[in-house]
Simulated scan of single mutants.
Amino acid sequence: MEQNGGATGPRWAVGGRGECPVSGQVVVVTGASGGIGRATAVAFARRGDRVALLARGEKGLAAAADEVRAVGGTALVLPVDVADAAAVDDAADRVEAELGPIDVWVNVAFTAVFAPFADITAAEYARVTEVTYLGVVHGTMAALSRMRPRDRGVIVQTGSALGRRGVPLQSAYCGAKHAVKGFTEALHTELKGQSSNVHVTRVDLPGVNTPQFDWVLNKMPKTPQPVAPIYAPELMAAALVHAAEHPTRRAWWVGLPTVYTVLGNEVWPQFMDWYLARTGKDGQLTGVDASPDDPSNLWEPADGPDGRDFGAEGRFSDQQWTRDPQIWASRHHGALAAAGAAGLAGLAVLRRRR
């Protein structure tokens, strides 16, 4: 069965295992000027997709567009603040007018404040929530309003291990990511109840080597870092592309730290409280002194008129993981389960023969 994509022709072949992409999709990526969003835009472009890049930072967007074109994709740059619902909807109109009907929408954009809760102002808390949570809501609204009449499309939400377990110094970000989880689960059930062919899936990620730790609003005396092990943004981008290609799975856990964080908090949350109270703060700080001149992207993009293009990777490239067996296992869990069941059945037969 094929579902047509209007003037641009067929884009989806739908089978019993869910949607399988064909070439030339229209993909929207928010937060595309740097970090995971930028790596994700490039990863989709490698498939030959037409990619709309949404973010505030125009230097980063321009550089990301060059990278998209360099690997064979088509780039449409749309400077937008995802906290502005009307601006996001207008951007979606431009995408469909210039690239065609949207097939995949990936919500990546976020911001954060790195500080104890008592040191975060109400305005800062609201801003993190507006971008990191409501930005996902706004992107989903824009995508869904266009996908539902066509009864096809995929929305990918970038979740986090910190959306399953809160940690010190990141209360605003953790709260927003927990909200993304609850919102996405509610939407998933609504679409399922309507027997919709529009799919929404969430990908929970671990600590990643992105420029976030160069431009986050930091109120600590030392500069921040991801909790080890640190993953390459390109590896996370591949996970998001894979999720878009297999959207009938409701959620993905990416990386060993995500698995043990989620399971640890489910099995023994009191231990997690104790452990993070003892180690969570120091584990997120480097030995490098912070400076009042450090960039911050909370209110304005860090790559403003006097800023620079930060790229996809942060300053921890010498420490980052570029592979993880858990990611392979997560993608092939069905085959692994079948192999395990076959092995157990074989053992049972051998025992009976003895």
Rank of each mutant, 00 (worst) to 15 (best):
I102Q: 00
A338H: 04
R164G: 06
R354I: 08
I36M: 11
P233M: 05
V95T: 09
A251G: 12
P226M: 03
A277H: 13
A85R: 14
R50A: 13
A172S: 04
A143Q: 13
V68D: 04
A176Y: 09
R353A: 12
G73Y: 02
T158Y: 06
V200G: 04
V95Y: 11
G72Y: 08
W274G: 01
A161R: 11
S33L: 12
V208S: 02
A142P: 09
E190K: 05
R315H: 09
R351V: 01
G139H: 00
P10N: 08
P229K: 08
Q225K: 15
T132Y: 03
L276V: 01
H188E: 02
P211G: 10
M236G: 13
V167M: 09
T140A: 15
A345F: 06
I102W: 00
Q270A: 08
Y125W: 12
A39Y: 01
L134R: 15
V71D: 03
Q284G: 08
D119L: 12
V27I: 14
A112C: 15
A62P: 11
F183N: 03
D324T: 12
F310T: 04
Q212F: 15
D119T: 00
K181D: 10
D204C: 15
G264N: 10
L54N: 01
A244K: 14
V203Y: 13
Q194R: 14
A251Y: 15
D309S: 11
H242D: 07
A143D: 13
N4D: 11
L53A: 08
G24Q: 00
S171D: 09
E300V: 09
G182N: 07
G5I: 00
V154F: 14
R351Q: 07
D214E: 05
Q3A: 10
G340D: 06
A335N: 04
R56S: 07
G280L: 01
H246C: 15
V254F: 07
L235F: 01
W274L: 07
S330Q: 07
F114C: 13
L263D: 01
T30D: 10
W321L: 07
E58L: 04
A244S: 12
P325V: 15
L205S: 08
V208H: 13
V82E: 09
G24W: 03
V95Q: 13
I120G: 02
A232L: 14
F110G: 15
L217E: 11
Q170Y: 02
H188S: 10
R38P: 00
P305T: 06
T74L: 14
A238Q: 13
R351P: 00
P301E: 02
A122E: 13
E96I: 06
E58S: 12
A244G: 14
T286W: 02
G18C: 09
A45D: 04
A97Y: 00
T261H: 02
G314C: 03
D306W: 07
S160W: 04
V28W: 02
P229F: 05
D306A: 01
A345N: 00
G60I: 00
F44P: 05
S160K: 11
R146I: 11
R148T: 15
G283V: 04
G16V: 11
R47E: 05
W299P: 04
D294S: 10
P301L: 09
E266S: 08
A302R: 07
G159S: 05
G72K: 06
A43T: 05
Q270V: 11
P229V: 08
T223K: 11
